[in-house]
C-alpha cells in the first residue's frame, strides 16, 4: 500500500526585499495510512510551511519545489481546480484559530451542507442529517439546535470542534492539524486531544500533528519528526524518541521543559542562544552555535540526514549521545 503522503526533497523559499528565505530545506518524509506523525519545532523551524506547501496555501511570495505525492499522485504546485479535488476532500487541515476556516457570515449548517452537497452529491435533507451526526461525533451538545447558529455564537473550544467537524465532512484520509490546541485552555485542550485520539482510533485516518508542545506529541503521535531551521533534525518512533533522544536538539528541548511529574525540582537545563534566524544561519550544522556537543567538524561539514537505527534518522555527526 502506498504512503498516504510522500514528501521528497521539499524546498520552500520566500522572496523578501531582504533576500531569499529558505523556510524548508530538502525535507523528505512519508505518512503511512492510519498513523499519526507529530511534527515539533520552534518558531522558524518550518514545521507549518511544509504543510502550507503541501496544501498549496503558501503566501504569494513563497515557492515550493520537490515532490509531494498523495497516494502516489503528484500534487505539488497543481493548478487550483485539480488541487481542490484533493484538498479539503481527501486531505483536510485545521488551524490554531478556527475563525480562519469558518465564514463568520454563514450559519454552521450552510457551511457544512454546502460542502456535502457539492463534494458528496447529497440532497439537502441527507446533508443536514450528516452535518448533525458529525457535530455529535465531535461532541457538540444539542447539535440539532446548534447547527443553525453562527460561528461567533460558539465558545473557543466549541469552535475548534466545529472546525474539526468541517474538516471531517468528506471523510478525509489525512487530517493536518496545525497547533490545534495552542490557543485553548488546558482543560479544553484535554477534551480536544481526547477527541482527536478517538477520531484516530475510530476512523483510521492519518494525522499530521504540528505543535511546539512535546506533551501533546507524547499523548497522540506514533512517530515524531523534530524540525529546526527548516531541516529535519531527528525522526523516530515516539517512545524511543522520548526515552533516548539521539539529537542534541531533541535532548535539549526535552530537558528544558519543566515537568509536572518530576519529584525534585532542579534548575532547568537550557538550550543557549536564540531560535533560528533563517537569514543568518551558521555554516556547517545549523544547530551548531546552540549545541553543547559541537566540535570542529560541525563547523566545516554539514551533517546529512542518515539512518542510525531501525526507523530512526538524524542530522548529526555524533554517533550517539
Amino acid at each position: 500500500m502506498p504512503a498516504i503522503l510522500d514528501v521528497r526533497n521539499l524546498n520552500t523559499t520566500f522572496s523578501t526585499p531582504e533576500g531569499t528565505v529558505r523556510a524548508v530545506n530538502d525535507v523528505s518524509f512519508a505518512i503511512e495510512p492510519g498513523e499519526t506523525l507529530g511534527i515539533v519545532g520552534e518558531s522558524g523551524s518550518g514545521k507549518s510551511q511544509i504543510f502550507m506547501s503541501v496544501m498549496g496555501l503558501l503566501a504569494k511570495n513563497g515557492r515550493a519545489e520537490g515532490s509531494v505525492r498523495f497516494k502516489g499522485k503528484e500534487i505539488l504546485n497543481l493548478p487550483v481546480e485539480e488541487l481542490n479535488t484533493i484538498r479539503g476532500v481527501k486531505m483536510s487541515m485545521i488551524f490554531q484559530d478556527p475563525m480562519t476556516s469558518l465564514n463568520p457570515y454563514l450559519t454552521v449548517r450552510r457551511q457544512m451542507t454546502e460542502v456535502l452537497e457539492v463534494h458528496r452529491g447529497m440532497s439537502e435533507q441527507v446533508a443536514l442529517k450528516t452535518a448533525i451526526d458529525l457535530l455529535d461525533i465531535v461532541q457538540i451538545p444539542e447539535a440539532k439546535r446548534r447547527v443553525h447558529m453562527y460561528p461567533h455564537e460558539f465558545s473557543g473550544g466549541m469552535r475548534q470542534r466545529v472546525m474539526i467537524a468541517m474538516a471531517l465532512l468528506c471523510e478525509p484520509e489525512l487530517l493536518i492539524a496545525d497547533e490545534p490546541t495552542t490557543a485553548l485552555d488546558v482543560t479544553v485542550q484535554a477534551q480536544i486531544l481526547d477527541l482527536l485520539g478517538k477520531l484516530k482510533r475510530e476512523t483510521g485516518m492519518a494525522i499530521a500533528l504540528i505543535t511546539h508542545d512535546l506533551g501533546v506529541i507524547a499523548r497522540l503521535a506514533d512517530r515524531v519528526m523534530v524540525m529546526y531551521a527548516g531541516e529535519i533534525m531527528e525522526r523516530a518512533d515516539v517512545r524511543p524518541l522520548f526515552k533516548s533522544p539521539q539529537h542534541p536538539y531533541t535532548q535539549g528541548l526535552l530537558r528544558s521543559m519543566p515537568r509536572l511529574d518530576e519529584h525534585r525540582i532542579n534548575r532547568l537545563q537550557t538550550i543557549g542562544g536564540q531560535p533560528p534566524n533563517l537569514q543568518h544561519l551558521p555554516e556547517g550544522c545549523r544547530f551548531r552555535d546552540r549545541c553543547p556537543y559541537a566540535f570542529d567538524r560541525c563547523a566545516i561539514e554539514k551533517p546529512l540526514l542518515r539512518q542510525v537505527a531501525d526507523g530512526r534518522v538524524k542530522t548529526c555527526h555524533l554517533e550517539s549521545l
Binding site: 482543560t187 501533546v216 507524547a218 509536572l260
Partner: peptide
C-alpha cells in the same frame, strides 16, 4: 485536580 491531570506530560508511556 482536573487542571493538574489535564497538563500533558512529555513522556508517551506516562501520558497515555
Amino acid at each position: 485536580q482536573a487542571l493538574n491531570s489535564a497538563v500533558p506530560i512529555p513522556d508517551p508511556d506516562l501520558e497515555r
